[in-house]
Design a protein around this nucleic acid. Sequence first.
DNA 1: GTTGAAAGACTTTAATT
DNA 2: AATTAAAGTCTTTCAAC
Lengths: 143, 143
Amino acid sequence: MDELDRTILTALACDARISWKDLAAGAGVSSPTIRDRVKRLQDTGVIQSFAVELSPAALGYALEAVVRFRPLPGKRHVLEQQIQDTSRIVQCDKITGEDGFVARMLLKDIGELDPLLETFGRTATTNTSIVKSSPVRMRLPPF
Amino acid sequence: MDELDRTILTALACDARISWKDLAAGAGVSSPTIRDRVKRLQDTGVIQSFAVELSPAALGYALEAVVRFRPLPGKRHVLEQQIQDTSRIVQCDKITGEDGFVARMLLKDIGELDPLLETFGRTATTNTSIVKSSPVRMRLPPF
DNA sequence: GTTGAAAGACTTTAATT
DNA sequence: AATTAAAGTCTTTCAAC
């Protein structure tokens, strides 16, 4: 990880589909160099993937909720599976503490909340917060 | 949003740098069609960006924490600003309920936790959980 | 809205420093 | 590890359906 790698990652963070040629021009090196560096960043695992970011709102998900799940006795594994099988849950971490899982859930409207939570009624108790805004809407690790 | 759009988004979700030509071959249409559809998905806001996903671990961040922040009286705005200014916080939502913010924080090691939290000592009380695993490590909204 | 074909642009390879 | 140049491949434009 040198200055050139950081320049490359910065450019890719803005537009992951930028051409090697444009990236090369911006960084002041040749395109084969860019290509080699990117390949190396992928091989070393720094770059995990080139992803597309979709807008939940544009797809009709007007609301996001943060839900903490506390598994009922003996239901820890079942809960984890059910969370993975719930496509409206787009992110979930297993965490230390009383609550076993914290998840991000997408909703078309507030009327969807209760039915969705009730599907977890036999596996967990839940604590739900509605997302009012996202002061930091996903950024890259410092590099 | 028809079947072709969904095919395109699915392919881009796997590899956002796939060529229009390969995408076209997979979808059974021509490359200009793919190009037009992607442009339209961007113009309508469904595609927010083409992003690169980095591995926190590969960059030396061995730990992730989920931190809930409860602002001290009158410190709500200051807290929000401080959160945005903290580069180790890579995601943060302002939520309903007693805790005003929930954030994801990157740490090189556990020794970094206390010093980092103490920088918030005058603006908020905090409740921290360590991420043990990520059953759902970020996926796209259903489409 | 989609296609095919041609011109132009980009990527990749391989030889070189 | 980086560069140049050439061959190969992809993208874009545009006339046509």
